[in-house]
Nucleic acid binder design. Structure first.
Length: 480
RNA sequence: GCCCCGUUCGUCUAGUGGCCUAGGACAUAGCCCUCUCAAGGCUAAAACACGGGUUCGAUUCCCGUACGGGGUACCA
């Protein structure tokens, strides 16, 4: 039986869950689900200076929100310290690493002097073993550097194909700091070996780290995993997506009223596609269609406009019962409904949601649109008034509509349109000639859901009141 | 500077030598549907970075150039 596939997502807790990170996690997750593998979450907190608990929390919350559940972890890289040190000591003992007694000041001076030409000069490679041991025993501060061998390091990248680095272009990098803590490359390799990771799928900003890490695997006598490097996500200006582009954290999108399933779908399509023309795809479909081979090499610009479109599609198909808990707090916060009305008027609110969700692109647009139906008085849109009420017959048409609604029985959505059509017919005009002025009277706008639903939701009393107010306004305008 | 990676409509992308008069999606414009809006349908405009090869034939393969991105830390 082949070894099970094991992948990991390893964010550093130095901020928020960036959409780029989320996308990396997503591809790992998809791959694990597709192959029946295991998805491990590991927090890379070896840099104590920059790591903090709060951002770990934020990252975990972000992943949970977007639906990226992990099978093992979260593990903390810092907990592996003894193993990291043991691995470094082992390499030291076996000669694949050596102590470096150069001080940070010395190195900084050389760097300053040589500017861009700088590369560690391997000075301490020449320190004899006995001397190195003696100086260390005497307590002289030192780091441990990896002794980069001659030759070429290459791998068959799952995304990029054959990739190779001349070892000569790799400096003898530090693996253990003066304080005995590991540098990223050592910690990652040590942990990935320990966690039996079979596929390392990460951002392609890690490509230059890969040969170093392969060298480490080899020095530690471990099996080198498969590597796949994902293209970056860019902002609209083609630069790496960052804060100045606006929303870049997963949490930002939650705040913006984006549905997690929409972000999930959208991110999956950034740098990957199913090979056919499907775009709106549920998780199961994505898992079904996913393959590492179809991941692109080219970095992608994050198109917030298309995300909104996709969100609209998800909003449309989301059952109102599921949408309700998301919208209800916003309605309450806007003061549009009282807390208890969320329960007492639930059916009515669900009906309203049903109408609005197909017209909204984000959850947050819904309360804005709902205001018209929940708060008096109506705010008239001047353009709508000017266009739809300009006909002198408007008052009569509103009057006819009013009459039709006043005695309507039963008060159902289905009964309303025929009644209004009959009113229009009795005036000898098309339905639109009644519906449009009425729409403005009821909603203040020339755009709304179907007039039958609008009338129904407002209720007889509410509808008549708004019509009366419109007629008063018209009368006042005519008089002056 | 050096080392890597990349380059198809404005954006996301299909395309693995002839199926390409380069397909789809978002956005844009028009039309249809229609009580308006949204959704939907139809249509339009819109791309193979450039230069050399290889080949009967290159978007597709190779090499350059240009441009973009990443790395070059006792950060991850």
């Amino acid at each position: 039986m082949p070894d099970p596939i094991r992948v990991r997502f390893a964010p550093s807790p130095t901020g928020y869950l960036h959409v780029g990170g989320a996308r990396t996690a997503l591809f790992n997750w998809l791959f694990a689900r597709k192959t029946g593998g295991v998805f491990v979450l590991r927090i890379e907190d070896t840099d104590r200076e920059r790591s903090n608990e709060a951002s770990t929390r934020t990252i975990l919350d972000g992943m949970t929100w977007v639906g990226l559940t992990w099978d093992e972890g979260p593990f903390h890289q810092a907990d592996g310290l003894p193993r990291h040190q043991a691995d470094a000591r082992r390499m030291l003992a076996e000669g694949s690493a050596y102590r470096c007694f150069c001080t940070p000041e010395e190195l900084a001076a050389k760097r300053e002097q040589m500017k861009q030409e700088y590369r560690y000069d391997r000075k301490c490679r020449a320190v004899p073993r006995e001397e190195s041991d003696a100086r260390a025993a005497a307590g002289e501060p030192h780091t441990i550097r990896f002794r980069v061998p001659e030759g070429v390091t290459q791998w068959d990248d799952v995304v990029h194909g054959e990739t190779r680095f001349e070892n000569a272009s790799i400096e003898d990098f530090i693996i253990l700091r003066t304080d005995g803590t590991p540098i990223y490359n050592l910690a990652v390799v040590s942990d990935d070996i320990d966690m039996r990771i079979t596929h390392v799928i990460r951002g392609d900003d890690h490509i230059p780290n890969t040969p170093k890490q392969i060298l480490l695997y080899q020095a530690l006598g471990a099996t080198v995993p498969a590597f796949g490097h994902l293209p970056m996500i860019l902002g609209p200006d083609g630069k790496k997506l960052s804060k100045r582009h606006g929303a870049t954290a997963v949490g930002d999108y939650a705040q913006l009223g984006i549905l997690p399933e929409a972000l999930f779908n959208f991110l999956a399509l950034l740098g990957w596609n199913p090979g056919d023309e499907r775009e709106v795809m549920e998780k199961d479909e994505l898992i079904q269609a996913f393959s590492l081979e179809r991941i692109n090499r080219k970095s992608a610009v994050f198109d917030a406009e298309k995300l909104l479109w996709m969100n609209g599609r998800y909003l449309e198909k989301k059952p109102v019962e599921e949408l309700f808990p998301l919208v209800a707090p916003l309605l309450a916060a806007e003061g549009l409904v009282r807390e208890e009305e969320l329960e007492t008027r639930r059916e009515w609110l669900l009906h309203l949601l049903e109408l609005l969700k197909v017209r909204a692109r984000s959850v947050h647009e819904i309360p804005k649109m709902a205001r018209t139906y929940l708060a008096d008085p109506v705010e008239y849109d001047q353009d709508a008034v000017a266009r739809q009420w300009k006909d002198p017959a408007t008052a009569d048409r509103l009057g006819a509509a009013r009459a039709a609604l006043e005695g309507l029985q039963p008060w159902t959505v289905e009964a309303i349109e025929p009644a209004l059509r009959a009113a229009a017919e009795s005036l000898g005009v098309g339905f639109g000639k009644v519906a449009q002025p009425l729409r403005v009277a009821l909603t203040g706008s020339s755009a709304s859901p179907g007039i039958d639903h609008v009338v129904y939701l407002l209720g007889r009393e509410g509808a008549l009141r708004r019509i009366d107010r419109a007629r008063e306004r018209l009368a006042a305008a005519t008089a002056s």
